[in-house]
Design a protein around this nucleic acid. Structure first.
Lengths: 208, 208
DNA sequence: TTATCGATTTGATATATGTCAAAATACGTG
DNA sequence: CACGTATTTTGACATATATCAAATCGATAA
């Protein structure tokens, strides 16, 4: 993918709270997260918000905007972050030249669809505890895939944001964290979390 | 899009209950629904099922499979249906030749991502009545876009399937239909539904 | 037509999660 | 470093939806 180097238009820095883009913005580029952490959220007219994802290093963000040429959600930095801008027109042109790149792009989009299906399953059929466990295991796995500790990491988002993502209220998130801690499955200190019993957590999802 | 004609590999017929594909099947093609109605569902190991969508004429199905080269959900015919098979390798080759087709394909995938975000919002932050109303309005709009009546149509799916899609139990679906009927918003007779007060339904979603 | 079986409706009750409120804790700023 | 503010935790209580059960309805096949 060294063709991609030619493509990278610019690298930008954002600090906690900055918007990478807002719903309604004209679509120009996808963004590859180079460092840091983002959330994406859609806002309902009546003020309700739904967090639709948390994105970390190596992930591509902005795919929703291709559909209408305008972004359909907000992307907000949860910590100081850097992103590489990938102008979509150029990306399409390059992927017409390279079947490998083309397939890669298609897989990235498809993976996002599969991810979303997983969240539907979570929101549609899991209880609060299962949702939170699934969330933690997903983070754990993504950190592991990046060579970081799968059992010891910082939560970049608030209880409120976790709750929005999981379709629960922040109090429920807090209570469920406390519960998992009482059972000896995790150790949590505000944003610092340690998974004490990974198999134990995994078994929360299967059957029980 | 007459290039697409060259692409259509075969047209297949399915009767109610037939699987178009199953989770785990090797990915070869996307499918354009030519007539009829399908549902897609993901199955959890412990037997839980989540309906992830209902697809009708003109819609493309199978995008999730690009990611892993294997289907990640089941697609089941809800009535007698016909689909056109679009071999994905050929589709990619053609879209390398035609920027228009390429963009079209990207928009279809992106639209699916946006649709999924909408369902997350629904599952994550709406009450039962709002979910069902949103579901009905979505069907209404899709029928209207196809030149069919936006106020008078057949539900192709069971209460159970609607419930799975909306993250609710079938009893809740039934009760909520009854409630909307009592309020004079809809007239429902098992699978036949008539929307009596479209603005009234729309106002269920905004504010109230 | 009638019998049968699955789907739907409705009722009574249970329960998970939400709501409201207060206390405790962490964090940013001057 | 200390203050003020925002976030988190915890408790008591409310409520939406689930669960369990029974009755009804509708479609299919003999």
């Amino acid at each position: 993918m060294n063709q991609l180097d030619a493509l990278i238009h610019a690298k930008h820095s954002y600090t906690r709270g900055d918007y990478l883009y807002r719903s309604g913005d004209k679509f120009e580029s996808l963004y590859a997260i180079h460092s840091g952490f983002f959330k994406t959220q859609v806002l309902h007219e009546d003020g309700r918000e739904q967090v639709t994802g948390f994105q970390m290093i190596g992930e591509i963000i902005g795919l929703d905007a291709i559909s209408t040429d305008h972004h359909t959600c907000d992307a907000v930095a949860l910590e100081d972050s850097e992103v590489c801008e990938l102008p979509f027109g150029k990306l399409e042109a390059l992927s017409r030249e390279s079947p490998t790149l083309q397939r890669h792009l298609h897989k990235i989009m498809s993976r996002e669809i599969v991810r979303d299906q997983g969240i539907m399953l979570l929101l549609g059929s899991m209880r609060a505890e299962e949702r939170l466990v699934a969330f933690l295991l997903n983070l754990s796995q993504r950190f592991a895939a990046r060579g970081m500790s799968p059992t010891d990491f910082q939560l970049r988002m608030s209880r409120q944001e976790i709750g929005s993502y999981l379709g629960l209220k922040l109090e429920t998130i807090s209570r469920t964290f406390s519960l998992l801690q009482q059972r000896g499955l995790i150790q949590i200190q505000i944003k610092s979390i340690e998974i004490l019993d990974l198999p134990g957590l995994q078994s929360c999802l299967k059957g029980a």
